[in-house]
Design a protein around this nucleic acid. Structure first.
Length: 137
DNA sequence: GCCAACGTTGGC
DNA sequence: GCCAACGTTGGC
């Protein structure tokens, strides 16, 4: 199983909205970047991901699970773009801020730090464990 | 609100 | 295939 990080601006799509979708989940649409798309193509059902609030909040706030494999993004006719479906699994008891992540030497290689604009990114097992611990899991 | 980083587009 | 122009992202 692999680990990922999904970025969303909370005034566009927030963790609260994701939670409200429940077990049905929500397609992760709107990705228009090849690298991010390729990461979604590499996902498998059952993979886990962090839900990160960008711009407002700037923190990892929860954990989602990939529940449907990659398919064409229904929000565009452009065949280049795909989406997966994710459902909220659990919130982090304590959201982990970007500041905390940047301050932790164990997380210095996180793509969130080194490639801050990438909206869907892989997370290593080590990084996953550290962020979960910081978040109170 | 600003601006740096960087990805995409399109002319040549 | 190069590269300038342009648009977007996202931290501050």
């Amino acid at each position: 199983m692999a680990y990922w990080l999904f970025k969303s601006e909370p005034d566009v799509w927030s963790w609260e909205q994701q939670v409200a979708r429940g077990a049905e989940g929500e397609p992760w649409t709107g990705v228009r970047n090849y690298q991010a798309r390729n990461h979604m193509r590499a996902m498998a059902v059952g993979d886990l991901g962090f839900f990160y609030h960008s711009n407002i909040g700037k923190a990892v706030v929860g954990i989602v699970e990939v529940i449907a494999p990659v398919r064409p993004d229904p929000t565009t006719d452009d065949p280049r773009w795909d989406c997966v479906t994710v459902r909220a699994l659990r919130p982090l008891p304590r959201p982990v801020s970007l500041g905390q992540i940047k301050a932790d030497p164990r997380l210095a290689q996180m793509l969130l730090v080194t490639h801050s604009r990438l909206s869907v990114q892989p997370v290593t097992a080590g990084e996953w464990a550290v962020v979960c611990a910081l978040g109170g899991l």
